[in-house]
Amino acid sequence: MATASIKVSETPLVLYTLRRADDALILGHRLSEWCGHAPMLEEDMALANMGLDLLGQARELYSYAAKVEAKGNDEDKFAYLRDVRQYRNLLLLEQPNGDFARTMVRQFFYSVFADLYWRAMMKSDDPTLAAIAAKSEKESAYHVRHCSEWIVRLGDGTEESHRRVQTAIDDLWAFTGEMFAVDDSERGLIDAGIATDPAGLRTQWLKTVSDVVDEATLALPKNDWMQQGGRSGHHSEHLGHLLSELQSLQRTFPGATW
């Protein structure tokens, strides 16, 4: 690692924006890992397209965080020059792709949340976040539709596809609680009308997820124990490996451009 990590002044709004930017970047990177490996050409394009949407959202959010922080950081520095403990994404999104069913379940859990979240954020009193939300909610709607269709097709498909998608649901379920968690720094932004309270999205999220899972002849786990940590930088072992690939060029050749 040739280049030192940057320092970030994590005021509540900077931290809030970085958390959402990290969600988009990390999930977008995971989807990009499928490029050239998807089960068929149309799906290869779909995964790359969804990854591109997320990368675009990440760029806008990082740029806004940099503007608010006003310490000379920019989107590239946030993405390439923060260490694993400085990343603030949801644990769900850094989980490895696994098989296609696991990738679809991860996308499904997150996209249903993101669609509700961005729609609520269109009413934010922060005009930049509201504008990013207005763009992102349309993209999320496509993602929800795409992965919902796959959950049904896989769940109500063959014995093997059913088993694989059910295993993925069981394994990833414990990471879904973190989407609805709020800490003190976010509570202040919610009270100020800048952030939306994710707790208010949970009922609708569960309803949409349950409807699709039912149609797919699958079942949600009864266990409600939830794992958290990503928002405060306590990640699973997978994120470090992801970042070593994502950051290798900038860490090896600092400031490289093309």
């Binding site: 760029r59 763009k135 993209e139």
Partner: peptide, 8 residues
Amino acid sequence: TPTYSGCP
């Protein structure tokens, strides 16, 4: 104004 967030 960008058309899509990730429009290259």
